[in-house]
Design a protein around this nucleic acid. Structure first.
Length: 494
RNA sequence: GGCGGCAUGCCCAAGUGGUAAGGGAGCGGUCUGCAAAACCGUUAUUCACCGGUUCGAAUCCGGUUGCCGCCUCCA
């Protein structure tokens, strides 16, 4: 069947056929660097990261471009507020962006161009549009004339007349049509400015993506992504500019991710109901956040709350717990290949489920990146694997049993890895998770360890009352003890 | 006012014409010195409501209600 994806342009799921066999040219709108990123940005980044990883997994040679908007009114305003240069602001938040993305485990695109490094390309496009009479200068600004582009509104599914009837469009005496949008914005004295045939100024917002897309990916490219809120006007305008300038289709497939909501309302800067990525990562493990995001289909809205995030955390802990159990209870060294028959005879169902995972994974991902379904498969395999382990009680697994457990675990990790999940060694994850959660209890790890040691002494002396008292004391502070064959483990439950 | 989306058990959530995945929580059990974790069992004859198409619909069509988004910067 092959990859099917929902194309915003046609509002249908379509079979994906690359423009050039084996290759994909992929562009995602990046951020405007005037402030820290919030969870909404995190969702978008994670969603497109998984799409990128999956396209590579399918064997495509992917050229992935994600830009930075490093010049814009909000950046200038911020610079003025702080009495500094727009570059300082942009650079600061680019650095912060990388810190956030790295923490989230989001892979770097192949190219991450800056708008300000691509101004000649923008001027070139604007010039083309001027030459064709589709753009006009008015005062110190240059505008795109929407009526000169007949299919304007196709992506967002609305007609020009309808939009004008909306009447919320700012009346601008410079514009011939209220829907015309700025391509080049004349600078006021003291504002950042670049020379152009229309006088000193700066580019309008939409033109940068047309210029960078064209420069790095060509006139027409395969996939363009971004948040749903970019459909109109940003992407609509990109299409108008690019297609009018180059007389070629701009993009074949448009992919848009849904919003992150708080209390069922869109998270946004303007509403002020946002959490920054860095704040959330103070208390939530990045992989838990990733699991949270991928537990829902990328086009649906998701509600971000303590409860929904906690569910993802518990789920992730469960998956890692099973991986840890396999690691602890099977021999460290691999003793060669075990015959399939021997594996199957250990537990036919687990064996089959392990073998079936690659195809189930691919079918779900091919179906418009159905990561939620994939995660369901992960839990199914985890449960069977854990059940298999439990059959052996406290005993270690040997021979074909160990081989089957390892095969199931490594298959699980391999496919979860394509989505950027289960990428850590289980003990590393559990340690990170403990340390993260410990902050909320106000306790130090040493203190916990000391109390555990005291409890062990008491238990050795058969003083269970004292042992239980210590456990209760820790429990009240949010530390849950788990006595295992390998000693006492602890985790934080608050 | 225009355009679009969504409504699945207590909560989250997949399902795209063939008879309801998965996770969390709850309850019962196994295990445990006691716990925790884990595992097992259990919770939707039913998918907002009303009609229709079909041998068959959560899935398609029409209508109703509710929520959300876009039309202004926004992932």
């Amino acid at each position: 069947m092959g990859l099917q994806l929902f194309n915003t342009l046609t509002r249908n799921k379509e079979e994906f056929v690359p423009l050039e066999p084996g290759k994909i040219r992929f562009y995602v709108c990046g951020v405007t660097v005037y402030d820290h990123c919030h969870i909404g940005h995190a969702r978008s980044a994670i969603v497109f990261d998984v799409i990128y990883r999956y396209l590579m997994h399918l064997g495509y040679e992917v050229t992935y471009v994600r830009n930075f908007t490093d010049i814009d009114d909000k950046i200038i305003r911020r610079a003025n507020e702080e009495g500094t240069d727009y570059r300082t602001i942009a650079q600061r938040y680019i650095t912060a962006f990388y810190e956030d993305m790295d923490a989230l485990g989001v892979l770097r695109p192949n190219l991450e161009p800056l708008a300000t490094d691509n101004i000649p390309g923008m001027i070139e496009i604007i010039q083309k549009l001027m030459d064709k009479g589709i753009a006009y200068q008015s005062g110190t600004d240059v505008y795109f004339q929407v009526e000169g582009f007949p299919s304007y509104g196709r992506l967002s599914g609305r007609a020009l007349e309808d939009m004008m009837a909306g009447a919320r469009v700012e009346v601008d005496a410079n514009k011939r049509n209220p829907m015309d949008f700025v391509l080049w914005k004349g600078s006021k004295p003291g504002e950042p400015a670049w020379d152009s045939p229309w006088g000193p100024g700066r580019p309008g917002w939409h033109i940068e993506c047309s210029a960078m897309g064209n420069r790095f990916l060509g006139k027409t490219f395969d996939i363009h992504g971004g948040g749903k809120d970019l459909i109109f006007p940003h992407h609509e305008n990109e299409i108008a500019q690019s297609e009018a300038a180059f007389d070629a289709p701009f993009v074949k497939y448009w992919i848009h991710n849904g919003f992150v909501n708080i209390n069922n309302e869109k998270m946004s800067k303007s509403l002020g109901n946002f959490f920054t990525i860095r704040d959330v990562l103070q208390r939530v493990h990045p992989e838990a956040l990733r699991l949270f995001v991928l537990s829902k289909h990328y086009r649906s809205p998701v509600d971000f709350s303590d409860e929904t995030v906690a569910e993802a955390e518990r789920g992730l802990e469960k998956l890692y717990h099973t991986l840890a159990a396999v690691k602890d209870r099977t021999p460290a060294s691999q003793e060669g290949e075990t015959a399939e028959k021997a594996l199957q005879s250990q537990d036919s169902e687990l064996f089959q489920e392990t073998l079936a995972l690659p195809q189930a994974f691919t079918e779900a991902m091919d179906n418009d990146f159905n990561t939620a379904q994939v995660i369901g498969y992960f839990f199914g395999l985890q449960r069977h694997l854990q059940r298999f382990l439990d059959r052996f009680g406290q005993k270690k697994l040997k021979g074909p049993a160990a081989a089957l457990a390892r095969k199931a675990a490594s298959t699980l990790r391999q496919y979860a890895g394509i989505m950027g999940l289960l990428s850590l060694e289980p003990e590393v994850f559990m340690q990170e998770q403990r340390m993260l959660k410990l902050k909320a209890t106000g306790m130090m790890a040493e203190e916990v360890e000391r109390l555990i040691e005291l409890r062990q002494q008491a238990r050795k002396n058969k003083d269970f009352a004292e042992g239980d008292r210590i456990r209760k004391e820790l429990e009240d502070k949010g530390i849950q003890l788990e006595d295992t064959a390998g000693g006492t483990r602890w985790r934080v439950t608050v």
